[in-house]
Nucleic acid binder design. Structure first.
Lengths: 121, 121
DNA sequence: GTAGTACGATGACAGATGTAATCGATTCGA
DNA sequence: TCGAATCGATTACATCTGTCATCGTACTAC
């Protein structure tokens, strides 16, 4: 459960988080954009099951795969890792960095402003 | 130069960014905290040189290794990747997420507020 | 009932990564 | 001058990742 999830695996998790329990087949359809074969999707699902990130429920002859870990938990972990590694654990430099690089639109900035106001309560 | 830099390699880059050109020996001393042998540090430096992330300048019988890529460029790329992957490319949800998880101290929030004010000019 | 089809399981394989030992050449100290 | 120390280079090797093929089995449609 504390296992890392690779980037390809993350894509698979995404559809499970969005679409709830799915068969491998259905997941593959949902992942058509990735250009993977069904075999590849099955491998990724197996690996996710092996590391306890998804559960398998028998549904006749096949499995329904459902996410076990919450998206937010993984996202939190990965964000933390990045912020620790790249910005000494502080979020402000990250935001400053994104801003500096023009990665923030004025809409983003407005949104952030509202968020900050909210956080200050 | 567009090659990714692994996590272990990043640690090596850190000392090069901080300490300027260094010999493998000196870098290893600087990285003592990682619990790596000198051999490991040398391997990482070679790999970084192979992918063009550091330059090697002969200094007598050994090399001085210096960073070629800017820290900010790598950080930007990695941040972007993470934000794209986890938050649909928008920074606000990342900040909101960190806030939600209590990852932001009130000092952080104050800092962010100041930053936002600045960004609005 | 048998030929195809659809499952999950298992095996494959190359490239990246973490971690390190060893090697051939050189230099330096005694 | 000769052995020790030190370089970078080469080799090693297990694990992880991306990507997929194959296999044994069970069902489905004729």
């Amino acid at each position: 459960m504390t296992e890392r999830i690779s980037e390809a695996e993350w894509q698979v998790m995404e559809v499970l988080w969005r679409q709830g329990p799915l068969t491998a087949q259905a997941a593959a359809v949902e992942l058509a954009g990735m250009g993977w074969t069904l075999a590849t999707v099955k491998t990724l699902l197996s690996r996710l099951a092996a590391k306890g990130a998804v559960s398998t429920t028998e549904d006749g002859r096949r499995f329904l795969y459902a996410p076990v870990v919450a998206r937010g938990d993984i996202a939190a972990g990965e964000s933390r890792r990045l912020v620790d590694r790249l910005f000494g654990g502080r979020a402000t430099p990250l935001v400053a960095h994104l801003a500096e690089r023009g990665e923030l639109s004025s809409a983003d900035i407005a949104e952030l402003e509202a968020l900050i106001r909210e956080l200050k309560q």
